[in-house]
Design a protein around this nucleic acid. Sequence first.
DNA 1: AGAGTACGGTACGTACCGTACCTTATATGA
DNA 2: TCATATAAGGTACGGTACGTACCGTACTCT
Lengths: 209, 209
Amino acid sequence: MAESKKEQAPNNGAGTRRRGDVLENAILQAAWDELETTGYNRLTMEAVAVRAQTNKTAVYRRWPNKAQLIIAALIKFAPKPSLEAADMGDLRTDVLTFLQGIFKPLQAIGAETIHGLMSEYPGKEHPMSKPLPPRSEDALFAAMKAIVGNAEKRGELQPDRLPERVISLPVDLLRYEMLTTHGSVSEDIVVQIVDELFLPLVKAVAQAE
Amino acid sequence: MAESKKEQAPNNGAGTRRRGDVLENAILQAAWDELETTGYNRLTMEAVAVRAQTNKTAVYRRWPNKAQLIIAALIKFAPKPSLEAADMGDLRTDVLTFLQGIFKPLQAIGAETIHGLMSEYPGKEHPMSKPLPPRSEDALFAAMKAIVGNAEKRGELQPDRLPERVISLPVDLLRYEMLTTHGSVSEDIVVQIVDELFLPLVKAVAQAE
DNA sequence: AGAGTACGGTACGTACCGTACCTTATATGA
DNA sequence: TCATATAAGGTACGGTACGTACCGTACTCT
């Protein structure tokens, strides 16, 4: 009798109403799925709610807008590059493997999403969780510094000769290419960046004899 | 009597209804003004129409969406960099003056607008008038090639030694910085790019003895 | 058991989009 | 000079998405 109100429990027969982390994860998962199938621009809060089998209210209770929601979804579900600096014996190999390792993760997020986020994001008055952090806090930059540090320890480079701009050059250019190339970026861009730009530069500035 | 319908001619007393290029320019001017005061995201077609003292219909008759309208406004009103390669006697001066010349125009457009355009722009199936053209058609790249060519003629560089990536490096990095730096980019980034990256690279690869 | 919390669900007001429709001014040329 | 086509002015609409309010109801916790 009292059960008649349930009208065929809408989910599985077990505990019906999700809460807290369970619901939060379901929403983030839905946002990530929606992002992959629909793309950032056409993604709507309502579609995310529907896919998560909940409603907009539950979404807005947690994230105030689309940008914040998607950032949270990226943090949780986007493929993360390995940030441990490979240490294989020479600088070229280390940088190449590192860049190749971040290539696919960057590509998985996609230019449309980045542009959308950076376009919509408040920026001012919002010093938290930006899509692209300043260089000093950038994990990819830190990884490159570690790689260069290893090469210095091995004696490949004279210490402290490389300006920050040189160290960040490969990651910056890779990101630039991802942002501005509609369609897919060929993976050999990584090799070009290393062999035509980074290594000649290193050689000119700081290579030990 | 028949004049009573005019209700105090809303514009100047002279020819009332604008057409063709006059109206088109008024709309583009309004779009440009609106872009500068409101910003790309919050700019609406209706606001442009109101500022141009016309209505949405007249706008949509000419441009199918916001992105196209803004691109047209940029082409007409955005400050254009000088594309003639300076030829002052040495490569460093030429590249510096060139980069400094494109600095302000790039900054005038602004990251928000570029991100918005690149986010909304169809891209696929639309091979026309992209915000960022491919390198081969990029006017800034062509200018850099001319500058390098001048240096080769002077004997500063050995001819045909510089890969395209080296030539486009300064412009690419400058654009990257403009796109990813919220707030204002300091102008000495230009000097850094030239002195820490481009010139050492040129020296390493192609400088004549 | 009771009380607070947070989800489910709906409905609403707002904003903007893009289009349809009609009226009216202007350019053109027969 | 008048007729006609064109394009402007202007309004109104359907549609979509946003973000919020409200309320009933399940769940949690003590």
